[in-house]
Design a protein around this nucleic acid. Structure first.
Length: 104
DNA sequence: CCAATGACGACTT
DNA sequence: GAAGTCGCCATTG
């Protein structure tokens, strides 16, 4: 068990078609900080379970972590696959699609 | 145990 | 208001 597990748990709670932020997850866990969340998702490969990390973006709605995916375009593809429009590495209408773990 | 790192965020020029 | 600086804090080497 580690801080990662909590991050993965919350990340898996994000409903399809919605996105969340590192800060929101960190705030929900009331532990660490936004960096820890991103750092945790970077090591998500340790789980064979598909972690919807593409639904987690920074507070600007930018796909900052797209570079860490198998392909830089993989993240955008997955988001568009869920009816989430992405423009210039940024989630369109991110403010509306934003979802906070507490709002489940 | 000490130092470096990092998918970020808030604050300061 | 855009760009730069500093703090965050668990994990890894």
């Amino acid at each position: 068990m580690s801080y990662y597990d909590k991050v993965y748990e919350v990340t898996l709670t994000i409903p399809p078609g919605r996105v969340s932020t590192y800060g929101a997850i960190a705030d929900y866990l009331a532990l660490g900080s936004a960096r820890m969340v991103g750092y945790a998702l970077n090591k998500c490969h340790r789980f064979e379970e598909p972690i919807p990390a593409h639904r987690v973006v920074n507070r600007n709605g930018e796909l900052t972590g797209r570079n860490m995916f198998a392909s830089p375009t993989r993240m955008q593809e997955l988001l568009e696959s869920e009816n989430i429009e992405v423009k210039n590495n940024r989630v369109v209408d991110f403010k509306t699609l934003f979802w906070h773990p507490q709002d489940m």
